[in-house]
């Protein structure tokens, strides 16, 4: 497996750092090398927050990636800022709830999900981050979905168990949308 570098970006508070941690955790559980590098600059406070997750069979050299294979863009500023950096043939997951415009990269697979609607349907409005993660995992099969589900459940142990089911439901809804998008040449889910 070639190394996969995933850039996950959004407003602070949208949960992209947590979604990234779950992805890294799941990959680690599958015996892969991982790194999770957050932006921690001033933009963290109320601005955009992003995290780069690297997944690889080999030891990860640079955790800092300027040309990601995958972009999860939770908002318009993130898409504007990072869209051009994605490698040709890469994957861009766009949060259709907040991003009105289409992605402009014809050489990438673009998956568009209405993360808020799917999260609400799953019973947890705040789980849009896991809808996005689900869409990515569903569309690419980067990891088995069960591995990610296990990592999500682990994340909400120790007193936060009541959130497990809705977050899992959100992830599954996203994954289903991602699979559909991958199956169809039409990439709008």
């Amino acid at each position: 497996m070639k190394a996969t570098n995933v850039l996950m970006a959004g407003f602070g508070g949208q949960g992209m750092l947590l979604a990234g941690k779950v992805l890294a955790q799941a990959a680690m559980a599958k015996g892969l090398q991982v790194s999770w590098l957050p932006s921690y600059g001033p933009e963290m406070r109320g601005g955009t927050a992003n995290v780069i997750v690297c997944i690889s069979r080999d030891p990860i050299a640079s955790p800092l990636v300027t040309r990601p294979d995958v972009l999860l863009a939770m908002n318009l500023p993130s898409l504007d800022r990072f869209e051009r950096s994605v490698v040709p043939g890469g994957t861009i997951v766009v949060n259709g709830t907040l991003v009105a415009r289409e992605a402009s990269r014809a050489d990438c697979r673009v998956v568009r999900v209405d993360s808020r609607a799917l999260a609400q349907a799953a019973g947890n409005e705040r789980a849009a981050n896991f809808v996005m993660l689900g869409a990515y995992v569903g569309a690419t099969g980067v990891l088995p979905e069960e591995a990610v589900e296990e990592a999500i459940a682990d994340e909400f142990r120790d007193g936060k168990e009541k959130h497990i089911d809705t977050n899992l439901a959100a992830f599954r809804a996203g994954a289903a949308a991602g699979r559909r998008a991958a199956a169809a040449s039409e990439v709008h889910a």
Partner: peptide, 10 residues
Amino acid sequence: DGMIGQMMEP
């Protein structure tokens, strides 16, 4: 440096 401090790795 801050990067080592802030990043997560196994």
